[in-house]
């Protein structure tokens, strides 16, 4: 009987680990500890969910890329995504701009920029081309170990 209860608890925690309710509007994200406790977030089952999240190596997912041209003819981009992890994700990104021939446009803006994505939250960052002749781009990322 005890065994069955433990197994059921684990199963429920596993199912609940991915859920993160707390707001009726997806634009409003309520963090753990701010929202009411759920099966996935209460003090007993949360460590299990955290452990699973860590074991499966949850990270960020890029969900949307937007582009537009400013009035002055500069290409502007916005990258939006979601951090699936139960931990804050710190990373650096670097945008490189390319001209119509695929040549990299040299700019001080092509530097590693810090980004922080809160646990189980949406995030977004943007960039603007250094010159109207920059018509394309590419982004690289790396783990940031220098930020607390």
């Amino acid at each position: 009987m005890v065994k069955r209860t433990v197994v059921c608890g684990w199963a429920l925690a596993l199912v609940g680990a991915g859920c993160h309710p707390g707001s009726s509007d997806p634009r409003v994200n309520t963090a753990l500890g701010v929202q009411s406790d759920t099966l996935a977030s209460n003090i007993i089952t949360r460590p299990i969910g955290d452990f699973i999240s860590m074991m499966v190596g949850e990270g960020i997912e890029v969900r949307d890329v937007k582009e537009r041209k400013t009035d002055a003819g500069f290409l502007e981009i916005q990258i939006s995504g979601y951090n699936h992890s139960v931990a804050r994700k710190l990373f650096d990104y670097k945008v490189e701009w390319l001209d119509a021939d695929g040549m990299v446009v040299d700019t001080a803006m092509s530097r590693w920029i810090q980004m922080s994505a809160m646990p189980k939250s949406e995030f977004a960052f943007g960039a603007i081309a250094p010159h109207p002749r920059a018509v394309s781009w590419r982004i690289n990322t790396r783990v940031n170990r220098n930020v607390q």
Binding site: T70, A108, M109, R111, Q114, A127, I128
Partner: peptide, 17 residues
Amino acid sequence: DQAAAAMVQSLIQSGSL
């Protein structure tokens, strides 16, 4: 590098130029 990149991006994005 970080400060310069942020400043240039903000200035170009603002449209003030």
